[in-house]
Design a protein around this nucleic acid. Structure first.
Length: 623
DNA sequence: TTCAGGTGTATTTTT
DNA sequence: TACACCTGAA
């Protein structure tokens, strides 16, 4: 038996719940959802005798997948092999490599990332003579991606298209798909789409895959899109061996096609599904939890778990009214420095903001005072120029049809591509990825482009070395290329900026990237109408609810202390604005708040703003 | 092939 | 304000 003594009774029930029945675990923030899911996987294997490789764990990020697998492994101890796990996308790649031919997917397809997609869209627009200034390729791609996420193919889209925009999209969509076929390329969305298509159309494969993975466990189910929903349904509808974990209140990716309603749809497709709610929170203080509850309660369109905790009441929520964005940053600085003397570490802090552009002011303040920080979300490793350059060489070797990569390679230098093509016959594509990579570097002389005395160039060379070390992990080149496009790597260069001890640093990131993480002390900055909630969400109830969920996610990251701040005047994209304080602030109950700035301590903030008796937004700063 | 200068655009970004 | 992208000239 696996040891479940450290779980609460409800968690235990979820872990031990009968294995042949579909189970939906609604798990609030900080309620131990990953713990429950990993324990359940371990329980199936160790106590129920399920073959480890028959257990399929699906998530959205490689990081989360990796962590789940290693946690299961720890629970199982050594004499068990690992369950199967990964992201929906990497799982799809594996299925398509093995069985994709049945729906016309070549084994060595290229995986097109967003950049490649845009390039292909541009090409399609060129073919059709669509003016790229009149219609932005990115917004066309958006519509196409949206359609794909909802399993709408180009023909079906064309039949629904209304108005000139959609009609153009429909045309581009068709040409785009033709180009992808020509290039032997699948974009991110196709990976899911084609896999669903394959399982729907080819019964042999469906049965085979069901045999291979009779037990399916999915984390963060509120983030699934239609394609992912269909995929899990296809896998589990017959066996009923499905466990999903999710929380509608933490759904913040609807703009990428995610639909928290999939949690409800599951009840329709699996009528015998049992729901277990995990509502005890182990992370936050009572005050933080109460405040977060009040904020999320305003949402009417989805179920809301009422979290509770045995933790201490804790400190009050600090609200700070800054004069400007610079003043706001100074406040953070002062607070961080003040507490560091009291034994609070820099790594206990995270500063969360709605938009990336907001990081700059905070960075400047930290930089000026020599406070080390880690900034999340720069250019991703596999999107760096030098990495993509080399990958484009490799991609044309594996898949000569890949015109997007060819174009990129030719931009580096036509001569180099020519040399590479001439040597093609001398390169054994069956040999190790790393040896092929080294041959490519030698043949193209790519490294000559960089000057070892130049600091920036050296960083690029470092990245290439990093890429080499990843290549050693894959023997098959085609598999290497397909998987790494779907993998985010921790990029070490250029992120930490300080000479001080690198391990202890404040974290700076967007609210979105904070999901799933926790910190002792959280600053949420820019709590202003138009910024957070963002101006784009102001007109739509749906989007406003998502902003509110985002606020909830941010607040529930904090264990001990939550700081909310806003600025009376803010310079944003070269414009000076005066935004009213965020409506979310007004939802935090008065008795949980301490107002940090001296100026307006006399008057309680909720008298200054909020909704008036007619439900209209009001704001009256007293100067 | 390279680079300077003009132009357009700026929400979030798991893969 | 800032920067990615495109264009055209050298």
């Amino acid at each position: 038996m696996i040891h479940i003594g450290d779980l609460n009774p409800i968690q235990q029930r979820a872990v031990l719940f009968e294995k042949d029945r579909p189970l939906m675990i609604l798990a609030g923030a900080g309620s131990g959802k990953t713990k429950v899911l990993t324990y359940r996987a371990a329980h199936l294997i160790k106590d129920e005798g399920v073959n480890p490789s028959s257990v399929l764990l699906l998530t959205f990020t490689n990081k989360a997948a990796g962590e789940m697998l290693s946690r299961v492994q720890t629970l199982l101890e050594t004499n068990y092999s690992s369950p199967t796990g990964g992201t929906f996308h990497s799982f799809s790649v594996r299925i398509l490599r093995k069985f994709g031919l049945a729906v016309g997917v070549p084994i060595s397809f290229s995986v097109f990332d967003e950049n490649d997609q845009i390039e292909t869209i541009k090409r399609a627009m060129q073919v059709l003579g669509v003016d790229q200034k009149a219609m932005r390729p990115a917004s066309i791609l958006n519509s196409i991606s949206d359609a794909k996420n909802n399993l709408i193919g180009e023909k079906e889209y064309a039949s629904y298209a209304k108005g000139s925009f959609q009609e153009t999209v429909a045309k581009v969509y068709t040409v785009y798909q033709n180009l992808l076929r020509q290039y032997s390329g699948l974009d991110f969305d196709d990976l899911l789409l084609k896999t669903v298509k394959l399982l729907k159309e080819d019964e042999n494969t469906l049965n085979r895959v069901r045999e291979l993975f009779p037990y399916v466990l999915v984390d963060e189910y509120q983030d699934t899109n239609k394609a992912q929903y269909e995929l899990t349904k296809l896998l589990a509808i017959k066996s009923h061996h499905l466990t999903v974990v999710g929380d509608a209140s933490q759904a913040i990716y609807s703009w990428r096609g995610a639909d928290y309603k999939n949690l409800q749809y599951l009840k329709r497709d699996f009528p015998e599904i049992i729901t277990i709610n995990l509502e005890q929170n182990y992370r936050s203080s009572q005050n933080i939890l109460m405040a977060a509850n009040e904020v999320i309660e305003k949402n009417k369109n989805h179920p809301i778990l009422r979290l509770w905790t045995n933790n201490e009441q804790g400190e009050k929520i600090a609200i700070f009214q800054a004069e400007s964005e610079i003043d706001e940053a100074q406040y953070i600085l002062k607070e961080v420095k003040g507490n560091s003397r009291k034994g609070v570490q820099l790594s206990d802090y995270a500063v969360l903001y709605r938009t990336n552009a907001q990081s700059r002011v905070v960075e400047e303040a930290f930089l000026h005072d020599g406070i080390p920080y880690i900034l999340f979300g720069g250019t991703r490793f596999y999107e760096r120029k030098e990495v993509k350059d080399i990958l484009s060489y490799l991609r044309i070797l594996v898949n000569p049809e890949d015109e997007v990569s060819r174009k990129r390679a030719e931009k580096i230098g036509k001569g180099r591509v020519k040399k590479l093509e001439e040597s093609r016959t001398g390169i054994d594509l069956q040999s190790n990825s790393i040896s092929i990579l080294d041959q490519v570097l030698r043949i193209t002389g790519y490294l000559d482009l960089y000057d070892t005395n130049n600091e920036e160039d050296m960083a690029r060379i470092e990245n290439i070395k990093e890429l080499r070390s990843v290549a050693t992990e894959f023997s098959d080149l085609s598999e290497f290329l397909q998987q790494i496009t779907l993998t985010e790597k921790e990029s070490r260069s250029g992120n930490t900026r300080s000479s001080v001890d690198e391990r202890d640093a404040v974290t700076l990131m967007t609210l979105h990237s904070a999901k799933g993480l926790e910190f002792r002390r959280i600053f949420m900055v820019g709590m202003e109408e138009g910024l957070f909630p963002h101006s784009r969400a102001l007109l739509s109830t749906e989007e406003m609810e998502e902003e509110r969920r985002l606020c909830y996610v941010g607040m529930t990251r904090a264990k001990d202390k939550l700081y909310l701040s806003y600025a009376l005047r803010r310079l944003y994209f070269g414009q000076r604005n005066s935004n009213p304080p965020s409506r979310f602030l007004a939802d935090v109950p008065e008795e949980l708040i301490e107002v940090k700035n001296k100026i307006r301590q006399t008057r309680h903030i909720s008298e200054q703003w909020g909704f008036d008796e007619n439900g209209n937004w009001k704001w009256s700063p007293d100067d």
